[in-house]
Each structure stands twice: as structure tokens, then as C-alpha cells.
Simulated scan of single mutants.
Amino acid sequence: MKVIYNCYGSAHSSVLAAGIHTGIVPDDRVATAEEISNIPHYDRTDTEEIGTVYYFGKDEFGFDVYIMGMKSSPKIVKRALLSNLRIFGIDRTKMILVDTLPYVNNLTRIGGFLSRGLGFVNLGRPLTIYGLQKSYKRFINLVKSVKKRLDHIS
């Protein structure tokens, strides 16, 4: 089974969810700013990398976890991904796509635009982290629901 957490740019919310899922950051408390900023790929994906699937790690079930940005075209990207699976004979049921964008608040959106869109990393990154900390419990619940689905499979 493959889990792909996806968001706008694969720099913030998908990275946080994958970090929680793989145990890089805690799932029993809100991570510190330093813990979040140290997650691999956090606030580092460039615009030209959007659409690339990045391997993130394995979870406790042995399932592979990935991240991917879809910019403002998630339906098109998902359709392309699923059609490629079909073309190459890969079973669609062996993959879970998890949209993390609904869990993002405006602070994270603004910070992400400042950091990744305009290049004001010193201003944007702290805003993204603060915003994610404010909605961290929602991300924990999202990951727990994904793991519950996986637990039924393993």
C-alpha cells in the first residue's frame, strides 16, 4: 500500500501530515517550531517541483508514505496519476490519496505564498509553522483516520 499526502505545493501541509504519519513529529502533542522546520522537505519545494511525488518514508505497518503538490489543479493531477496507474497495470486500490489542503488555515496559506511564492522565507516560514501549529490537532486526526484505514488492510 502507498499513501500519498497531497497539497498545493508539497511544502507545508502534506509534509506535516507525512511527518506525523511516519513519526518524524509527534502525534500526541503539538510539535515545536523547530520540530516542524526540521521535517524533510518542509518549506523547500520549488514551483518547478510541484507534481513530483517524493518518497517520505515507511510507517509502522511497513507502508510507503509519499508527498506531492498539485498546485491549483488537483483534479487534473489526480486524473493523470490514476490514468497512469491504469496504463501500467497498477492496482488503484494499492494507493491512498490524502488531500491535506482542507486542513490549512489562512496563516499557513499567506506564509506559504510569502515563502515559496515570493521568496520571503524569513517572513513566510514562521507564519506557516505558526499556522500549522494552530491546526495541528486536525492533522493528527487526519493521520489517525488514514492509519485506521491502513490497519484494516495490514
Rank of each mutant, 00 (worst) to 15 (best):
N38H: 13
S135H: 00
V15D: 04
V143R: 05
I153L: 14
L132I: 01
H152Q: 14
N38R: 12
F63C: 09
S13I: 07
S83C: 13
I153C: 11
Y130A: 10
A33C: 03
Y55S: 04
I4C: 09
L97C: 01
T22D: 10
K94F: 05
K58C: 11
I153D: 10
I50P: 09
V121N: 07
H21E: 01
A11S: 15
A17Q: 03
P26I: 00
S135T: 14
G124V: 01
F63S: 09
V146N: 02
L118C: 09
G23H: 07
L97P: 00
S83I: 12
K75V: 12
T22N: 11
N84W: 13
L150D: 00
R149G: 11
K2P: 06
K94H: 11
Y54P: 04
S83D: 15
L97R: 02
R138E: 12
I96K: 04
D91M: 05
M95R: 09
L123K: 12
L97Q: 01
R79K: 15
I24Y: 13
E60P: 05
S14D: 09
H152W: 12
D91N: 08
R125A: 02
S10E: 09
F61I: 01
I96V: 02
D99L: 04
S135I: 00
L114M: 11
I39V: 11
F63V: 10
L150K: 00
H41T: 01
S73H: 15
K148G: 05
L118I: 03
N122R: 11
T100A: 12
I4K: 02
M68E: 14
K148S: 12
R109Q: 13
I20H: 05
G57Y: 06
A33D: 10
E60Q: 10
T32Q: 06
A33H: 07
I140T: 00
Y66A: 08
V65E: 05
I4N: 06
N105H: 02
S14V: 01
K75Y: 14
T52K: 14
F88T: 10
V104F: 03
V77R: 06
K137T: 11
L101P: 04
L123F: 05
G117N: 00
K137L: 02
Y42F: 15
V98T: 10
K94C: 10
V121R: 12
I76W: 13
A80S: 15
F113P: 00
K58G: 08
C7P: 11
N6I: 12
N6C: 13
S14P: 09
T128D: 01
S14H: 03
T45K: 08
I87V: 04
T93E: 15
M68V: 13
E49T: 10
K2A: 05
D27I: 11
